[in-house]
Design a protein around this nucleic acid. Structure first.
Lengths: 200, 200
DNA sequence: TCGGCTATGTATAAGGG
DNA sequence: TCCCTTATACATAGCCG
């Protein structure tokens, strides 16, 4: 991608190696950011210069602090075997009305289970189903919360528009979803199921 | 770099998102490899698909196993005065289930949610991992979008405050929604369900 | 889903200031 | 050393089978 093709081996000239390092490093991180945004996945890039300096990219979509990514990595490698995980659609849109009702009922049932004495009788398949159910419950809760957020957002936009006199201002894309050289240590793992009561 | 330029935002079409993910992922890893070779530095790239599969690149040349790289990472961040990353322990609190009868009902009710094909082939480890991946995948998109919304709202609030002329409080929680946000579903669900440890 | 196939958009190796 | 510019090599979006 330059004036001419270069061999894929260590660049001996120190100066051009440094230049190339700088260029390609930022290129790599840019690519990582794009991948995480376009495909909505978690990406981590760590680069250590031979002078010991660290350059990193971790998409900070909150569910992905580096510590969690590392944890996921450890889990992945721990369960070696390379057994393929079946494809499961997890990004389905909010449930239909009928499903919502069912979901609400199921959640109550699940909650009873969780507060009851034994779980050992359930089979793996049952757990699978329970899990799915909880996921749907989560969707509902979030949908409600998000709806409120959007409403407020629209109100605020209108308010601003009225105050300024500018009809519409798009492009808030520059809000910066990504972190560079920074790791947020979120507390993600705390109380598993407090979501559920919200559905009642 | 394609037939036409694409917007830097999440690709909504699932199919093209997957295709792009595959292409760009390999591209990213190729770039990482080239960087490590050309510039003789240590590079690590971790990519987690939404289905929980891990794709990684670590230049294996020197004594840079990922664990060592991570150690170096932790050293770097620690030296920066940042808190070291603490592994979050998964506590297995005694969860439980009620009667088998209710379980049967639950399973039956929940059955319609399941569309997934060959889940039976999974091993326990895969299943446990899959469980959390499901939760994470579910969380990601909404979390990200919500984060942007929150940021935008904060900006808008500031803007409104400035326009109206209130130099006073920086507390925006009186607008209502933020109180709801404190019960953040994201943080409730990320931990593997309490049920899962019992599977061991 | 899974690969090839181009037309195009990008990244970047050299060079210049 | 750094910042631009520019010519090229590469990466990849949209298609097709």
């Amino acid at each position: 991608m330059g004036r001419r093709k270069i061999e894929m081996k260590r660049i001996e000239d120190k100066s051009s190696r440094q230049v190339t390092f700088s260029k390609r490093r930022s290129g790599l991180i840019k690519k990582a950011r794009e991948l995480s945004i376009l495909c909505d996945v978690d990406v981590a890039v760590l680069v250590f210069s031979n002078r010991g300096r660290l350059y990193e990219f971790v998409n900070s979509s909150s569910s992905s602090s580096l510590s969690q990514i590392l944890k996921r990595y450890q889990d992945s490698t721990a369960a070696d075997g390379k057994a393929s995980i079946a494809a499961v659609e997890t990004e389905s849109s909010p449930s239909s009305c009928a499903e919502v009702q069912t979901c609400g009922e199921l959640v109550k049932s699940v909650e009873r289970y969780l507060e009851g004495p034994e779980l050992e009788n359930l089979r793996l398949e049952d757990f699978m189903r329970l899990e799915r159910q909880l996921a749907d419950a989560l969707v509902q809760t979030r949908t409600r919360k998000e709806k409120l957020l959007k409403q407020e957002n629209e109100q605020l936009k209108d308010e601003v528009a009225n105050l300024i006199g500018i009809p519409k201002s798009r492009n808030h894309k520059d809000l910066g979803v990504n972190n560079l050289m920074e790791v947020d240590a979120d507390r993600q793992y705390s109380q598993p199921l407090r979501t559920l009561p919200l559905l009642r």
